[in-house]
Structures are given as structure tokens and as C-alpha cells.
């Protein structure tokens, strides 16, 4: 643990970008946890007298076409965006790694079935498949989560399958077999701890993509319904005002979205360095 912390400090000092990403990550988490408490205005309160005000002291990000404070809406939206992405990523992480580990460990039919499932999902353009799923299951936030989870499933299944596969006959796995350990026990105690680091990297890189995906779906009008504050839908609402010069409606939530995704991607890269110094990119 001490060694890990030292390594962490080394990676952070070597790579100030990762440090910045980590700080940004903390900020995002705080915004998600305390959102409504720290927002200066009620994100849903309309004010016909103050529509489309450009950014200023009173409204740092300006106001939208209904006079709502864009700054407050951007902050409050964090929880919803992060929540959707986190739930989706964890769903696909658990389902994906369970499937992938079994496929890599037992091979044979398990492997073929899991492979076929993930190939079939991957045969679709993933965003398009997500659109189809939400359309079929119904237009709701939960269904956005399920759709995002499903299209990410193959990535987790593949990584965990590959990582398990190369280790399934490692000396220490055989040694555990010689100690009479059952397959399930070997998977949980011997293999899973070893494939966790690459999976964590995958989670971090995937988080950004899941956020983008969820925001993209709400941008085209799926999932989140107005007047709820969510970055994708805010950009969609602001899009019509871009051509007439009211840029702040779309730009601020868009920038927040971009910053969040950027942060997770940087963290993923940093984590990769932390986990595997040889595979630096």
C-alpha cells in the first residue's frame, strides 16, 4: 500500500496533467453530490423578465430562453449525467466481467456463447443500437441506462476474457488447483484480483464514453425530458439560438460535458500508467 502511494505520487508528479485531471474529478464529484445546495438559483425557476441575458455578474453563464440561470442548471445537471453514466458503467462492468471471466476461464461452449453475444452486439453501430433500444423499451432515464450498459458490455467482456485467458493456466492457478481449490474459488481469489487493474482502466476510459453517449441520446430527445437539467438536452435547447448569436445557452453545458469526459479520459490514461508503466501512450 505504501509502495502504491509512493508510485501514485510519482505518477502524479511526473505527470501534472493527471494531477489536474484528478482535481477536476474531485470538483465534478462535489458538484454531483452537493449540486442543488451550491447552485445559486433554482434551476427550474423561470423568469420572463430575464430571458436570454448574456453572461454577467448576476448570472455568470447567462440565462436561457425561459430566464433560467444557466450556471445553476449546469451544476445541477452533473448529478444526473454522472448518475446515468456510473450506473450504466457498473452494470456493464459486473455483467461483462462475469461473462468474460467465465468465457476466458472455461473456454469451450461458454466462450463461444459469450463471444457470439458480444459479437452480435458489436455488429451494430453502438450509438444506433442504443437509439433502437431506447425506442423499443420506452423513452425513460432507466432505459437510457440499460441501453448504455448493454452497448458497453462487449468491451468489458472482451478485456476480462483476454486477461483471464492468458492467466488461466499460470503456475499460481495450477498451484491453487493442487491445493484443491474449486474453479469458482480460483476465479474469485486468484484471477479476479489480477485482472482488476486493467478493468479499472477500462472503467475510467469507458466512463467518459458513457457520459457522451447518454448526453447524445438526450440531445436527440431521448430519455431526459424537459424541464430537467441535463447537459445534452441543454445543448439541444441552446442549439437553435447559436445562429442568432446567443452562444452561452449551448456552449456552457457543452463545455461542462466536454470537461467531464476529458477528465475521465485523462484519469484513465493516468491510471494506465499507474497500473502498467510499460504500456504508456
Amino acid at each position: 500500500m505504501k509502495r502504491f502511494l509512493r508510485h501514485l505520487r510519482y505518477v502524479m508528479s511526473e505527470n501534472p496533467v493527471t494531477l489536474a485531471a484528478f482535481s477536476l474529478f474531485l470538483l465534478i464529484v462535489i458538484m454531483a453530490l452537493l449540486g442543488p445546495a451550491i447552485a445559486p438559483y433554482d434551476p427550474l425557476a423561470t423568469d420572463a423578465a430575464k430571458t436570454l441575458k448574456p453572461p454577467g455578474w448576476q448570472h455568470p453563464f447567462g440565462t436561457d430562453h425561459l430566464g433560467r440561470d444557466v450556471f445553476s442548471r449546469v451544476i445541477v445537471a452533473t448529478r444526473l449525467d454522472l448518475g446515468i453514466a456510473l450506473s450504466a458503467v457498473f452494470l456493464s462492468f459486473f455483467a461483462g466481467s462475469a461473462l468474460g471471466c467465465s468465457a476466458g476461464f472455461w473456454g469451450g461452449w461458454t466462450d463461444r456463447i459469450v463471444g457470439r453475444i458480444s459479437d452480435t452486439i458489436m455488429a451494430f453501430p453502438l450509438f444506433v443500437l442504443a437509439m433502437g433500444i431506447v425506442a423499443a423499451l420506452g423513452n425513460s432515464v432507466e432505459n437510457i441506462i440499460y441501453a448504455t450498459a448493454l452497448i458497453n458490455l462487449p468491451f468489458y467482456a472482451r478485456v476480462s476474457r483476454a486477461e483471464t485467458y492468458v492467466r488461466r493456466n499460470a503456475g499460481y492457478v495450477n498451484a491453487a488447483r493442487l491445493c484443491g481449490a474449486t474453479d469458482a474459488r480460483i476465479l474469485v481469489t486468484q484471477l479476479f484480483p489480477n485482472i482488476l487493474p486493467p478493468m479499472m482502466v477500462q472503467i475510467s476510459l469507458n466512463m467518459g464514453w458513457a457520459i457522451l453517449n447518454a448526453a447524445g441520446l438526450s440531445f436527440i430527445g431521448l430519455g431526459v425530458r424537459p424541464p430537467d437539467a441535463e447537459w445534452g438536452i441543454m445543448v439541444a435547447e441552446g442549439a437553435t439560438y447559436i445562429v442568432s448569436g446567443e452562444w452561452w445557452l449551448a456552449m456552457f453545458p457543452g463545455a461542462a460535458l466536454m470537461a467531464a469526459v476529458f477528465c475521465f479520459n485523462l484519469l484513465g490514461d493516468g491510471l494506465r500508467d499507474l497500473v502498467d508503466p510499460q504500456r504508456r501512450t
Binding site: A170, G171, Y172, N174, A175, L178, Q190, P193, N194
Partner: peptide, 14 residues
Amino acid sequence: QMVFQDPSDSLNPR
């Protein structure tokens, strides 16, 4: 019982 070939592969890194 068995003693395995590559000592680095035969011990669980964790």
C-alpha cells in the same frame, strides 16, 4: 504436489 517452471509466473503477483 508440483513445483512450476517459470518462478515469476508460478506466484500470484497479488
